[in-house]
Simulated scan of single mutants.
Amino acid sequence: MNDKSLAQLFDPRLLWDYYQLTKPKVVALLLLTAWVGMLLAEPTLASLDRMALGLAGIGLLAAAAAAMNHSLDSGIDAQMRRTRWRPVARGRITSRAAMVFALWLALLGFVLLYWGVNPLTAWLTLASLFGYAVVYTLLLKRATPQNIVIGGLAGAMPPLLGWTCITGQLSAEPWLLVMIIFAWTPPHFWSLAIHRRDEYAGANIPMLPVTHGIEFTKTAIL
């Protein structure tokens, strides 16, 4: 690797673009809800080492899902004002490079959870990545106005993942936390979709305000 290649590799602008691929604000919110699951899992404070490893692994897999979304949705992103500045949509990073980056993050996160926390959390977190990056992004988003209702389950999983990090088992309590976020997600997203209705229509994405109108969507939100 020559000096020019090294300079490009460590270009602060390129590093910032890769950082943006991970949707850091979204990942921070997911980690917050995972942390809540960890705190509620046991009557006393769990091991800080286990909590740190769990949050790191969940964060890496969430970041991988975000980067996959950038790669798979680059064509749609380029058509919408809210997303057309994204690195892949603008061509600053190729779709292939974003996907390779995502796969490395996913591998690192999975190994960290599997060996450092427990296999159950590793597989559940990987399933959440698959639900968001494949089931929602590739299939539901383009196929049905119920996309965010069904696909929202992936984003609601972190409290359960936090719980299993500490306990190593499934139980009813974290599923209640999952259902709270699951129920909140569609009205939250539909309100944003109303605001961006024309952009979704232009990108041929069947969001509820596009397929059923704004008044129907407001009723669904209520």
Rank of each mutant, 00 (worst) to 15 (best):
P158T: 15
C165H: 03
G116K: 15
L48I: 02
I166K: 04
I221P: 04
K141D: 12
V36A: 04
R84S: 14
G57F: 00
M207L: 02
R82N: 10
P12H: 06
L14E: 00
D73L: 06
K218S: 06
T125P: 12
L124C: 14
M157T: 08
P186N: 10
I76K: 00
L105D: 14
D49S: 03
L177C: 03
W184L: 05
V100Y: 02
V88H: 01
M51C: 05
E215H: 13
G54H: 00
I150P: 13
L177W: 00
W123F: 13
P12F: 02
V26Y: 14
A156N: 03
T185C: 14
T137D: 06
S171Q: 06
K141V: 12
L29W: 15
L14P: 06
R82E: 00
T44E: 00
A154N: 13
T144Q: 13
L138I: 06
L139G: 06
L29T: 15
L153Y: 04
F130C: 14
L53D: 03
P12R: 05
A56W: 02
M68A: 13
C165K: 09
G151Q: 09
F182R: 08
L32K: 07
F130Y: 14
P43W: 04
D17L: 01
W85A: 15
L138Y: 11
L61K: 07
L40P: 09
A52K: 02
A154F: 12
Y136Q: 12
G116E: 13
P186E: 08
P187R: 09
G213A: 02
R196D: 06
V134F: 12
P87Q: 09
E173A: 12
M38C: 03
P158K: 15
V135P: 12
V27Q: 12
A98C: 12
A62N: 13
V134G: 12
G162I: 02
A172R: 01
W104V: 15
L124Y: 13
W115Q: 11
